[in-house]
């Protein structure tokens, strides 16, 4: 009986965790966080590549 309860508690935790992760992913999706992060990274990398010394010649 005790083991059953433990198993059920573990399952409940896993479900809660899954729900939490799902909610997090949903938040990322709905708030467009992935693209916002990408945009910031893009800006950062653009700044870096603007300043990289290169062998510019014809």
């Amino acid at each position: 009986m005790g083991i059953l309860i433990i198993i059920l508690k573990i399952i409940a935790c896993l479900i809660a965790l899954a729900a939490f992760v799902f909610a997090l992913i949903q938040a990322v999706y709905w708030l467009n966080i992935d693209n916002k992060i990408m945009f910031l990274l893009y800006k950062i990398f653009n700044r870096i590549t603007d300043r990289v010394p290169r062998d510019r010649r014809f």
Partner: peptide, 19 residues
């Protein structure tokens, strides 16, 4: 590549492009 090629960073925007 992201820190050398200027044409690479735009691909970070592919998700937005799909949208």
């Amino acid at each position: 590549a992201l820190t050398y090629y200027h044409w690479m960073a735009p691909y970070l925007g592919s998700g937005s492009m799909v949208d």
